[in-house]
Nucleic acid binder design. Structure first.
Lengths: 230, 230, 230, 230
DNA sequence: CATGAATGAGACTTCATTCAT
DNA sequence: CATGAATGAAGTCTCATTCAT
């Protein structure tokens, strides 16, 4: 039976897998198109074309354009959270966990800039609805990080001057801003050829995002102040 | 008062002032509507209604909806940059300058949350064009902050492990993320009544944004690590 | 009929034919609406309604309202030029060719007054752009006619007191003006019920446009002057 | 009283004259703007600016944009009809009258091309309403010409194979088409730099419109045919 | 399931006209 | 009379979504 199924050729397996595969193809296409055009500017037709399906097909897999956006966010966020959780789980003490988190995140940015661009720029703040929605999902990520901080504070290793949840926010803010700067700086000048004045560096031009992990580590753990005994 | 001015009668101001005043009224209205609906969702009609003018009047003051957005951004950004510059100028040593910057910013957020919401959420990443455009304007702010950092580093007071421009980015990221958390937490639940699970605090709920200045100060200058000699 | 054509079932034509057919339906509808309301006064909605399609459908077949106008002009002009060329080709000597041209044209006016009205009145001089555009297309028609004149002049049959291209223009002017008079006279009084004073006939009231061919023939070949030997 | 009137300076006379003068200024401005942009494309603001008055002022002299169009048409048509009538009145026999008519018309075209452009192109066929309206005014002109023809026919000088009113139409058509060709050819290539293929002359390029009077004379009186006894 | 032509609500923007000054 | 800022109706065009094939 499977042999004669039109989908059985080329090693394809079940219909359910086919369905999932096509859904993923659409999500990947949406990611590319959103990254290029932005969510509101992106047209469903563009995504369909990029995915190699008909416009109507999109609606067999997603209820609406909004639903597609949310599903994409969901999908990528799961991936991110899983990766970060694994990184943290692979370390032992709080400091190592923090660095693992930071390194995992910047590594991901560097490895998948298109996905990162969509996450960092397009998906986050598109609509009020999305904003509230994403807050929940980012919550997981933030709680993971806050857990690490709290652990370090509980161990007496880190100061508890800053409540762990807010410290987590702040660290996340650093990472996020660095990611944004790197992503926007990547193709600086862009299609408009308009370059910002190169004289005064505002940190927005090409730099090594992976190295930025060390900056975050340095700032977060030791701060700017020179240690008297260092 | 002087009766010979053609516009002085009946307390009327000059035509130029009238024009600027109405322009401002439209910008204020746009700010409120963008904050409520988001840029793409906001309709020109809504803004006109909010400003108490006819639809067509908008186009006597702005070339297009895009132009309105950019003008709003420009206007608010000037205000922000001026305020921060003044705060920094009022302080003497790098540490005081940094704290002045941070306090001025969080104070502004607290004082004008609607404006802050638009700046932090809507205006920043609306379109590719806007993104590039805003990058330039944020550049000013970042260079101001980077200047303070560099000054502290040059004075030997602060470590130069992190290049000043990137340190500025990171500090900005912290402030921005805290602002975002506070702004979204302010009316959490929103018009959809959907509340995030209250159990695990992710730092997104009501907190005192002004107090957050101290957190930033603490984290930036001393880091998390407990001083050996403290 | 042949069952193996994938589109032959149920008498359906090919998709390409469908597309062309609907395009034509829209053009026909536009012709009627332009004739009735004029190009600038005609609303896209009117055309859509007349064609029995949705507004948006127009834009699946034409880039803009302007494009629709141009396409209509193009379509009708091709038809006219082909008909006139065929008429001329079917005659042998210059005089016969001239009369064939004239008769074909007035015949067309009589047979398709709506199309003629749009060609003669609406499409010709709508915009600067259209004007330049149409000049090119009318050029073909004028060159055909000029060729006939030149042939007669070369054969020594006709005087070359008037250069052929300008003679062609003049003959075309006669035809055009007669067509205009007839078209406007057809439904004189129109929807406003305002009738021109019927006393003095200015040639604008109902007359037989087909007979006008003989007038053109008479005037063009012999002029008004009575022949001394006639 | 008149001395102190603000309008009395510079030899200006009564208020009524002022009013008429400004009305004329607006009409002249409208003529220029219509010639340049076309009736539908021309904006009332453009005309006001060209006339050096405020937008609202237009409405103190004309009921509407349509009224302005009609008044302009009226004004220019009166001038044309008066001129042609005078020319015809200055001649004695039908042939001379005909040539006087023709020469007066082409002379006018050559002398006032802007006015001619508006008459020939813009004003004639703008709207259904205008079309019917202009038919009446052109009627005068056509009746004048038809009178000349009829006179020649009555004198036995000219064949009555073509009814005078229709002969008048045809002659008018020649003149009109020549005028059109000359007007459009004047600035051929125009603002788009798109030149029609120069190879095949269609009579649309620069020629002497005044000489065209002779062509009309030749064609109308003698036709194309070579006289056997010539 | 897949297609993609068709739909039609709704957005932005223009511009003739008005009216308070 | 003159002004010109304001009005708001109306038009063109877009694009998410549907549904017959």
């Amino acid at each position: 039976m499977t042999v004669h199924s039109p989908d059985a050729r080329a090693g394809r397996t079940t219909g359910a897998d086919d369905r999932a595969a096509k859904r993923d193809r659409i999500l990947d296409a949406a990611e590319r198109v959103f990254a290029q055009r932005g969510f509101f500017t992106a047209k469903v037709t563009d995504i369909a074309k990029e995915a190699g399906v008909a416009d109507g097909t999109i609606y067999l897999y997603f209820k609406s354009k909004d639903d597609l956006l949310i599903s994409l966010f969901e999908s990528r966020m799961e991936r991110v959270n899983a990766l970060l959780a694994a990184a943290v789980a692979g370390a032992t003490d709080p400091h190592a966990k923090l660095m693992a988190f930071v390194r995992a995140y910047v590594g991901m940015i560097a490895a998948q800039p298109t996905a990162a661009e969509v996450m960092t720029i397009e998906l986050r703040q598109s609509t009020k609805f999305m904003r509230e929605y994403s807050a929940q999902r980012f919550g997981e990520l933030l709680r993971l990080l806050a857990g690490v901080i709290a652990e370090g504070q509980a161990a007496g290793q880190w100061s508890d001057a800053v409540p762990a949840p807010h410290a987590a926010r702040m660290i996340w803010g650093m990472l996020d801003e660095l990611a944004l700067a790197w992503l926007l700086g990547r193709d600086a000048g862009g299609r408009r050829g308009r370059k910002p004045p190169p004289a005064a560096d505002d940190g927005g031009k090409k730099f090594d995002i992976v190295r930025a992990a060390d900056w975050v580590g340095a700032l977060v753990t030791q701060g700017l102040e020179r240690r008297s005994n260092a």
